[in-house]
């Protein structure tokens, strides 16, 4: 009876404003290990997450953003909040990329989720240019181990930062697509986007 007697009205507008401001305040206080935001794209909503060192993950809608965040919490740190400002530049570049106005991502990345040979593969992969493709075997050679195309395949399949680290540019030697974490439709879309002639879309290089 007393429980029903005393209540305090909720204030959803204040709560929303406080919640939205918390991420940037936490970042300013040096308490935010992982900031994230979402970016709309033609292949679905993308989750973009960054440590203080750089972009650490890009998640596809099909993976489930909640699962991607939980994985980051388990593997890196649960100090995770939405904080749009840390990701402003990455979001701006992703939007420009999908509008065919950007051919090279110039944002710091944090490859902390990959180690050893996989990390080496992902570093080399950043050098594969917009609009070109490379085979698993070629990327293995570039990474210093020509026989390791299977390992290159798993490095690409577990790439935590797709699109920005362009694992979609890796295809089979016979020209077929191979696999893609975001689904083959997404891979086909990205390769198609990059194959469009720049003259038609005003791509700045």
């Amino acid at each position: 009876m007393t429980d029903l007697f005393f209540t305090m009205p909720d204030n959803p507008a204040v709560l929303e404003r406080l919640t939205a401001g918390l991420g940037d305040r936490a970042a300013a206080a040096g308490l935010l290990d992982i900031a994230y935001r979402t970016v709309d794209s033609p292949i679905g909503s993308l989750l973009v997450a960054a440590t203080q060192a750089g972009v650490v993950a890009v998640g596809f809608e099909s993976e489930g953003h909640d699962q991607v965040l939980q994985r980051l919490a388990d593997r890196l740190s649960p100090r995770i909040l939405q904080a749009p400002s840390r990701l402003e530049e990455a979001a701006r570049q992703l939007e420009a990329y999908f509008e065919h106005r950007l051919s090279h991502f110039d944002v710091p990345v944090d490859l902390v989720l990959s180690s050893g040979f996989r990390r080496e593969v992902l570093s080399r992969l950043r050098e594969v240019a917009f609009g070109s493709t490379v085979s698993y075997a070629e990327l293995a050679a570039l990474s210093g181990n020509p026989k390791a195309s299977r390992a290159v395949g798993s490095a690409c399949a577990t790439n935590p930062i797709p699109i920005i680290v362009p694992c979609h540019r890796v295809v089979r030697s016979d020209g077929s697509l191979g696999g893609y974490l975001g689904g083959l439709d997404a891979k086909r879309y990205l390769l198609g986007l990059e194959a469009q002639p720049a003259a038609l879309t005003g791509l700045a290089t």
Binding site: T19, L22, D74, P78
Partner: peptide, 10 residues
Amino acid sequence: TKPPFELVVA
């Protein structure tokens, strides 16, 4: 496993 802090706030 701990949920991301964003969920705690939500």
